[in-house]
Computed example of a mutant assay.
Amino acid sequence: MYIISLTYKTSLDNVERFIPEHNDFLDKYYRSGNFITSGRKEPRTGGIILADVDSKVEVEQIIKEDPFYSNQIADYDIIEFIPSKYNEHFKFFIKNS
């Protein structure tokens, strides 16, 4: 599992221009089962995506499809996350080692 932290590097007006395309990108990976949740940071300096993928290389490939990436809207920080405790409702997303 990976936490993808986006940090905007342009104005919010410019970010807003690419929100529809970014949402299409997100929808693609929700449909594939790779994205678990996503949303904006507060204050609005970027966003967070929680992704269920097998490797950091796969995350990097997915990110390259994001219009925020291709239009240089955001920087990305990728953090591998191995859940050790979780709410029972979240158990569905936990892979046994």
Rank of each mutant, 00 (worst) to 15 (best):
N23M: 14
Y8A: 02
F35W: 10
F68I: 06
Y69W: 12
F25S: 01
R40L: 03
D54W: 02
K85H: 11
Y76F: 15
N14K: 15
R31L: 13
K41A: 11
K9L: 06
Q72A: 08
S70G: 07
D75V: 05
D52I: 00
E88I: 11
E80V: 10
G46H: 07
F81C: 06
V57R: 14
K85Y: 12
L26Y: 01
S97F: 07
R44Y: 09
E21G: 13
Q72E: 11
A74S: 15
D54Y: 01
I3V: 15
I3L: 13
E65A: 08
V59G: 05
V53P: 03
E21I: 00
T45C: 10
L12E: 11
Q61V: 12
F81P: 00
I94F: 00
S38G: 12
S11I: 01
G47I: 10
L50W: 03
S32I: 02
N96R: 08
H89S: 07
E58H: 07
T45K: 14
R17P: 01
I73C: 04
E42S: 10
T7Y: 12
I63C: 05
I63H: 02
R17N: 06
Y30I: 04
F25N: 07
I82G: 05
G39V: 10
Y8K: 03
I63W: 05
P20I: 06
P20R: 02
P20S: 11
V57N: 13
I82N: 07
N34D: 13
S70F: 07
G47H: 09
E80H: 09
E60K: 11
H89Q: 14
Y86W: 15
E16I: 09
M1L: 13
N96H: 11
V53Q: 03
S11Y: 05
V57K: 15
F92Y: 10
G33M: 11
Y30N: 02
S5D: 12
S55G: 06
R40K: 14
I3Y: 02
T45G: 13
Q61S: 09
Y76E: 04
Q61Y: 09
I3W: 00
H22Y: 06
Y2E: 07
V57H: 11
E21H: 06
F25I: 02
N14E: 15
N87P: 05
G47A: 08
G46N: 08
F92P: 00
N14W: 03
I4F: 07
Y76H: 03
P83F: 03
E58N: 03
L26A: 08
L26S: 03
K9F: 09
S97Y: 10
I62D: 04
P20K: 05
